[in-house]
Design a protein around this nucleic acid. Structure first.
Lengths: 209, 209
DNA sequence: TAGATTGTTAATCGATTAACAATC
DNA sequence: TAGATTGTTAATCGATTAACAATC
């Protein structure tokens, strides 16, 4: 890979993927950057620039083959590989994620659930038993874990992240309201729900009438 | 308000708010943009630029008073007002949101829960009864609703959004995996969890070793 | 007053858009 | 071949960083 691709581009890729999926479902075979532009409300120029970061997927005079482009973007996003996911912190949000079937369709498979609350021990979510966090080191010895979803109180997030790193788990989907940028050798994707809600609140207050 | 403030700036405000809150908890009274810069991993220049979009909150030679700046950012984000929130779609995610106490501390109050599934009718989450979606028009007549959280299948999202608009609810916190940009007179904040997961997947695959 | 640090202007950098030659 | 539409270079726009005068 020559040049680093900006996160601004990466953020748009899943959206392309979604629209192409819908076009596929609708039976559309080919599409031009211009047509895609008008349904996605982005410029055709941006679409072509974004895609050409990864290669030339289109054909002059024709446009893009929807199925082909969909598959290629899937590969770019790493969706050709299955990802094993564990969820740490089985409160409401942790359960919601464990239950979200949609993720499995994208190749993200929940393989383990962990909590520190003994009352939850052995309970199941979608046939997956809740284990105690202390069993984690043992667990990762026998099961590959690609991603840990952290849905736990922020007080415990940093220590857990550090432990995960030492156990060889190097990607975190972080729902705890704390930054984990400092963790050694870790890829982190943050979902800060309260930040999102505050943004909404700002935009409500400053909505141009 | 003179010039529009960019969403890039707005996105950073909740993060400032969080760090200042933590400094407050730690008993810190004043802080310079430089100190804040080093703990937040952003440039001091950006901090000062961001803040000065909204006014001069600091003092030369002193820095910023933490409590004052915290309060001011809270006001900027509209957190001085209480927001009444309804949740539409009481699956796992809807329940998780209804249960998330943290939001109440920020002034977001869950006032109603709605679903289309009759089996849920009358069940309660944190003392709030689940109502049928058809009761929504009646409900908004008696209760102010500032924000609707949409945690429902994407098939129903667009129609529900349109209905909300017609009922006078003009802000949506959207968890459905569909874009709602076209809805008349509506402020939308999207939380696309699967997009976020795909971004993580990309960054795992392209993590520089 | 001297030192520190802001608020703000200017310079740089990067991302988006426009234009067009290449080519299917 | 003519028409369409890409891939890509150049132009523009906006956001970030640097610099410094203002001032507490």
């Amino acid at each position: 890979m020559e040049k680093e691709i900006s996160q601004a581009v990466i953020r748009r890729m899943p959206r392309y993927y979604r629209y192409l999926g819908e076009l596929l479902d609708a039976g559309v075979e080919r599409i031009s950057s211009n047509e895609l532009s008008s349904c996605m409300h982005v410029t055709a120029s941006q679409i072509r620039q974004d895609l050409n970061n990864f290669g030339g997927f289109g054909q002059q005079g024709y446009g893009y083959n929807v199925q082909y482009l969909y598959d290629e973007i899937g590969k770019i996003l790493g969706l050709n590989e299955t990802h094993n996911v564990i969820v740490i912190g089985i409160g409401n949000l942790g359960q919601a994620i464990a239950n979200y079937v949609k993720f499995e369709k994208l190749g993200f498979k929940i393989v383990g659930l962990f909590d520190v609350n003994p009352a939850l021990k052995g309970k199941e979510v979608r046939d997956i038993p809740i284990r105690m966090l202390e069993e984690l080191p043992e667990f990762v010895k026998t099961t590959r874990v690609d991603i840990a979803a952290l849905t736990l109180p922020k007080q415990n997030a940093e220590a857990t992240a550090a432990q995960l790193s030492s156990l060889g788990v190097h990607a975190i989907w972080n729902f705890a309201h704390v930054d984990l940028d400092d963790v050694e050798d870790m890829v982190v994707e943050n979902v800060h729900l309260s930040d999102s809600l505050m943004q909404l609140s700002y935009n409500i207050a400053n909505h141009k009438k």
